[in-house]
Amino acid sequence: MFASTPLSTSFTRLFGIRHPIVSAPMGRGAPPELVAAVTNAGGLGGLGLTWDSPQRIIELVNKVRQLTNDGPFLANFVLEWDQRERLDAALSAGARIISFFWGDPARYIDHAKAAGAKVVQTVGTPEEARRAVELGVDVIVAQGNEAGGHVWSRLSTMVLVPLVAEVAGKVPVLAAGGIADGRGLAAALVLGASGALIGTRFLASPEAAYHADYKQRLIEALATDTVESMLFDGGWPNAPGRALRNRTVQIWEDAGRPKPGSRPGEGDEVGLTPEGNIIRRYAIASKLSGGTGNIDDFVIWAGQSVGLVHDIRPASEIVTGVVREASEILARTASQT
């Protein structure tokens, strides 16, 4: 009954999609194939473009548009760096949903909107959410500290989402951090969100670009196996991130958590990218399919929701499974009141 029933919210109506699910724009780990699979399943795929060249951005956007038959998707930029040139490339290639993270989007919003794009902003406090509304963003992502990868907020998702929803008004809010199944989506909707942005669960899919060793670690991990630190800073210093504890984390902890410059094995070559580029210990880059090296030497980005991930599943099945479970929970709850 619920498998084909969409959960209509202000977010799904804004973008004309069936399901209130967004796949997190997880850099190279979320290639066009994953983005398109989520969009084609009725959600909204997320494409991370922060570190790509303008020409590469055009290629990636065109690939997603081709795979989705011009379906909607989200193009993301981290504002730790100037993104004007990259944003121009994405807009010129046809990206029409632009999301920003880790900084003030004020100088980019008008430019994106002038090109006909909707703007999504990730926040970590209700104060940030209030400013985002004043700036005219179309959607707010409330990312709790449980999230994997780089984390902006000090608050948990359970606390942050209702606080943000209170100040967002009519602007749709997406909950992010700690969500991997229909229970999480249902909870997010009850808390006042209009949908969920999901990362870790989508990394355990055939479409994700991470190496099979990486995905196996996700399946095996407990929620308590994640650790937040600034350890993996090669390419992005002074930014806290959540990853799985592995040998690299352990040797650093055993050494007393020394600061950059005196960490064990710092600068060691630990592997290669699929293109043959060197990856060094403590870099933000992890092991991709086609790359080389021992997974214990790389960062393994993952949120606390990793404890809910038990298998590799196609992204389309993840979308429909999450929606089906959330629909059943909400219907069951409604019938009991």
Rank of each mutant, 00 (worst) to 15 (best):
E166Q: 15
V139G: 05
P72T: 07
F77Q: 00
G144E: 06
V167P: 09
V123Y: 09
E80R: 14
W102P: 00
F101S: 12
I97R: 00
E146A: 12
K113D: 02
A142S: 13
N145W: 13
W102G: 00
V137A: 07
A117T: 10
W152Q: 15
A117N: 12
H111A: 05
A117W: 11
Y108P: 00
A115S: 15
V120Q: 03
H150S: 07
S153L: 11
L160I: 06
W102I: 02
P126H: 07
D138H: 11
G94V: 03
V161T: 12
D110G: 15
Y108W: 04
Y108A: 04
A147P: 06
Q143N: 05
L135M: 15
H111Y: 15
F100L: 06
V141F: 07
P172F: 11
A168C: 07
W81Y: 14
D138Y: 08
H111E: 06
G136K: 05
R130L: 14
T125P: 12
G94L: 04
A114H: 12
D82S: 11
G116E: 10
R107C: 05
E146M: 11
V173A: 07
G124T: 05
F100M: 06
R86I: 02
V151K: 05
D88M: 05
I140E: 08
G169V: 13
W81I: 07
E134M: 09
D138S: 08
A168W: 03
V139D: 01
K113E: 04
P172W: 10
R154A: 14
A129G: 14
T157D: 08
E146N: 10
G116F: 09
L155F: 14
G169P: 11
A147F: 10
A93F: 04
V120G: 01
F77Y: 07
V159K: 06
A106Q: 14
D88F: 01
V123K: 10
F101T: 07
E134G: 14
R107Y: 00
H111S: 04
G103F: 02
L79W: 01
P105I: 08
G136F: 02
I98Y: 01
E166N: 13
I109K: 11
A112N: 09
V167K: 14
M158S: 13
E85C: 00
A129K: 11
V141Q: 09
A90D: 02
Y108I: 02
V161Y: 04
V133L: 09
S99C: 11
V120C: 03
R107T: 08
I97K: 03
R154M: 13
V159N: 12
A112F: 07
V141G: 10
L79D: 01
V141A: 11
V137C: 07
E134T: 13
S92E: 14
R96P: 01
V164R: 04
E85Y: 00
L155R: 13
K170G: 06
P172I: 07
V164C: 04
G149N: 11
A89I: 02
